[in-house]
Design a protein around this nucleic acid. Structure first.
Length: 802
RNA sequence: GGGCGGUUAGCUCAGCGGGAGAGCGCUGCCUUGACACGGCAGAGGUCACUGGUUCAAUCCCAGUACCGCCCACCA
């Protein structure tokens, strides 16, 4: 206040006649209304009105006929030839009799209505601006409830014949705006000034709490000079000290900051920080942090005793003392009525209190509270004990990342930036992460007032808090809005159950945590492979989180846990765990426990409750204790990698998957253990087959596994890398199904091959594409053609004629 | 009216210059000693439309259509 940043001003505000308060744009909701556009004729002054002669009047159109009571001009476009001659003349406002000018203003749009527009500065934002430009009087014709208020309305009566006005005032004073609208239309029609009424669809703003049409209304309010605060707040984003993620949102921020308007911060509500302003009887305003400070200032100013009372009491006391002060001078007009609800400013001019030492001066505190966003703007530091220089404030301000929705970039983010820079000279955070907005099933923004809120508690009751949290992370892709899909929450609940069961499996197989276990020393390929995959998953998740790509992070840990760990590792390891005790079994047990630990750590940010629980349970079952809770545990660092182990297991996985697919498609009975013959296997393939014999037999439902130089006839066959796997099941295999399966695969590969060779045959491709891409295409070409050769051979071997 | 965004499998959504993906749903098989909130195998998409840039476009650019959001709007 003392720096001139906060001031009191008389302005039009969006007034909610239901709540009797000024409301912010955020609380206004536009609705499409089918109404009427009423065209009135305003007769030219000093001319005889003739309904049949359009040169004797000017037509204006309005959707709010009742506002005509407050009209103080008619505006036409300066370059509109139709009205050029009329500019500077006056019209007589019908019913009222006020003489008002025709002004030229660019606001008037020749394309709309008649091209002439009535100007009501007290009840329309644009008209208010026009009024300022042309120094027009501002005539408020409504009260706070949006009822017509003409009785004792000096601005309205100014320059008019009071006696002639009486019938109009008697008819309209106190009438609701809509009743007044009807009355005026009728009266205008009866007087011959109604030109026409046309149907009209237009947007009308409603208060979203009261459901009442908002009315522009003239009041005294507290304002912040936001422009002065916005400049530094804009600069820190331009200079990169504060970054928006995704970056496009900085544009929204700049749009707001560059066009910032004075910010009305007073609200006529009960909840909130009460404005620390005290009014004295002479209209002086004292702004101090506390009432004690205000009293001290007031005592210096007024002398004597100063008391703070309620507004009503203070006004009554002032009125009484003003009356007694003016008594000896009976020629002075009586003090103006205290009108309106918030018009302390109108008290200017009331007789000042005497400064005699024995006198008592009454103050009252502003009853308004601060706009909720003003209070919220202080959040980054007021929560840390500001204005005191607390240790918390020193340690935690500035904060780091603000995560919020794009709908409050204006209201909250921008204001926190302004306040933080103003009060602490430092931006409140370095990154603003803008997430998507959850919408209802129709795509509408959730709103407490509309009641279309997706209830998170109900979803949590049904699927668990972790499932909901994971869903939100998985859907956090940086789009605009998200429709919450229940099936998806359910899917992630299933994921939680899956992990729970996998952990149970490990427990049943005594996969205990081994203190000091070093996964890089594991000997078995399975262990080395899963450790490699876990390390990859950890890296993927960490990178995605660092890039604020939470959906990618969630997907990476989901895939590893379910598709790699549960679907393959657990299945491959079963023969070992149910086999004889020994060093391999011990190692697999320890590795399994280690991998689960890694999953818990990496998954913890997404499913904190489940993982924390499992963290405790697994330790207890292992007979150990954890150094910390999971939430405080260290994120796993880079784990070891072993690409050759990965190649080996990938071959086994590929083999099993292929055999399963062939069996299913050629209708091999599920219970049948089919023998496998591998053609084209090299020595390491043979090693791998021996090493994983049990797992392959179990997972591929295989009988014996053998290696051969030549494929048997009439067997089902499939290509696995460089190897052809055959299921010699003459009589059991559906050979027609097998032939069509192979042909389908051929067709797919041939299409692929045609694409690749077309590319490689194109000289421009070879000339312009980068080398890595060309090399990649060559490799793909080799792989595809070798696969095609094997498939062709397989189809040939199926032909019984050969 | 101004601005921004979207249009990819039946549904909800990722991907975004060189092989079209996930979850749910759907089809077939499986009561396999962790899990039926499960397992295995599948089907399903000229990536809205039209033109352009490029050796190459679902991806970049322009336009069209439809959908949505924000701002303005009570003539």
């Amino acid at each position: 206040h003392k720096q001139g940043l906060i001031y009191r001003d008389k302005r039009l505000v969006n007034w909610d006649p239901g709540l009797l308060t000024a409301i912010s744009d955020l609380e206004v909701e536009s609705r499409e209304i089918t109404g009427e556009l009423t065209h009135f004729r305003y007769p030219l002054a000093d001319t005889v009105y003739d309904p049949d002669d359009p040169t004797t009047y000017i037509v204006v159109a309005t959707t709010r006929p009742e506002t005509m009571l407050g009209d103080t001009a008619v505006a036409v476009h300066p370059e509109d030839d139709r009205y050029r001659a009329m500019v500077g003349r006056d019209v007589i406002l019908p019913l009222v009799g006020r003489r008002i000018p025709i002004v030229a203003d660019y606001y008037s749009d020749p394309e709309k209505g008649s091209g002439a527009v009535k100007i009501t500065p007290a009840h329309d934002f644009n008209d208010f601006e026009v009024g300022n430009r042309h120094k027009l009087p501002v005539i408020n014709v409504f009260d706070a409830q949006a009822a017509v208020s003409l009785q004792d309305n000096e601005a309205f009566a100014e320059g008019l014949n009071a006696i002639a006005l009486r019938p109009l005032i008697a008819a309209l004073h106190g009438k609701d705006r809509y009743e007044a609208r009807a009355w005026i239309k009728t009266a205008m029609e009866e007087a011959g000034y109604l030109d026409q009424v046309e149907a009209n669809v237009h947007q009308v703003p409603f208060g979203d709490r009261s459901g009442v049409a908002v009315e522009p209304f003239l009041t005294d309010q507290w304002y912040v000079n936001a422009k002065r605060l916005a400049e530094p707040a804009s600069d820190v984003v331009r200079e990169g000290k504060v970054r928006f993620v995704p970056e496009v949102w900085s544009k929204t921020y700049f749009d707001w900051m560059d066009n910032i308007q004075p910010w009305c911060i007073s609200r006529q509500l009960w909840w909130g920080h009460q404005i620390p302003a005290w009014y004295g009887p002479d209209g002086h305003i004292i702004v101090e942090r506390t009432e004690a400070d205000a009293l001290r200032v007031a005592e210096t100013r007024y002398g004597g005793t100063v008391l703070v009372k309620s507004r009503d009491e203070a006004l009554a006391a002032w009125r009484a003392s003003a009356a007694s002060a003016s008594e000896p001078r009976s020629d002075k007009a009586p003090p103006p009525q205290i009108a309106g609800d918030v018009d302390a400013g109108e008290l200017d001019g009331i007789a000042p209190a005497s400064s005699a030492a024995h006198q008592v001066t009454i103050l009252y505190r502003d009853e308004d509270v601060l706009d909720t966003w003003f209070s919220s703007a202080l959040w980054p530091f007021s929560t840390l004990g500001w204005p005191h220089r607390t240790p918390e404030l020193r340690k935690y301000y500035p904060t780091s990342v603000l995560s919020t929705g794009f709908d409050i970039i204006f209201f909250w983010v921008a204001r926190m930036m302004m306040m933080g820079l103003h009060f602490l000279n430092r931006e409140p955070f370095h990154t603003v992460y803008i997430h998507a907005l959850v919408r209802d099933e129709k795509g509408a923004k959730m709103s407490k007032t509309k009641g279309n809120v997706v209830d998170p508690v109900a979803l949590m009751d049904e699927f668990g808090a972790d499932a909901l949290r994971f869903t939100l992370a998985a859907m956090a892709a940086q789009g605009r809005d998200v429709k919450i899909a229940k099936a998806r929450v359910q899917g992630y609940r299933n994921f939680a159950t899956k992990l729970w069961n996998a952990t149970r499996f490990a427990d049943m197989n005594e996969c205990k945590i081994v203190a000091g276990f070093d996964p890089s020393c594991a000997q078995s390929t399975l262990a080395r492979w899963i450790v490699t995959e876990a390390s990859r998953a950890e890296r993927d998740v960490a990178q995605a989180i660092a890039a604020y790509r939470f959906n990618d992070a969630a997907a990476a840990i989901y895939r590893f846990t379910w598709n790699t760990f549960c679907d393959w590792y657990v299945e491959l390891v079963k023969p070992v765990l149910s086999g004889p005790d020994g060093s391999e079994k011990d190692e697999i047990r320890a590795t399994t426990a280690w991998v689960i630990d890694t999953i818990l750590k990496v998954l913890h940010p997404f499913m904190p409750f489940l993982t924390e629980e499992l963290w405790a349970i697994t330790a207890e079952r292992s007979g150990t204790t954890r150094a910390t809770r999971l939430i405080h545990a260290r994120w796993p660092g880079d784990g070891p990698r072993d690409e050759s182990a990965a190649a080996e297991i990938n071959f086994v996985v590929d083999l099993i998957a292929t055999v399963r697919s062939v069996r299913a498609e050629t209708n091999v009975p599920a219970a049948l253990e089919a023998d496998l013959i591998l053609v084209g296997a090299n020595p390491s393939h043979e090693n791998w087959l021996v090493r994983h014999d049990a797992a392959i037999r179990r997972l591929a439902r295989a009988g014996t596994i053998a290696v051969a130089d030549v494929a048997p006839r009439n067997a089902a066959q499939a290509v696995v890398g460089d190897v052809v796997v055959c299921l010699p099941l003459e009589g059991l295999v559906d050979l027609d199904a097998e032939r069509s399966r192979l042909n389908k695969e051929m067709a797919r590969l041939e299409k692929e091959m045609a694409k690749i060779s077309g590319r490689l045959a194109n000289p421009k491709f070879l000339e312009k594409a980068d080398e890595a891409t060309i090399e990649e295409q060559r490799q793909k070409s080799d792989e595809t053609s070798s696969r095609l050769d094997k498939l062709r051979a397989a189809i040939d071997r199926l032909d019984p004629a050969l």
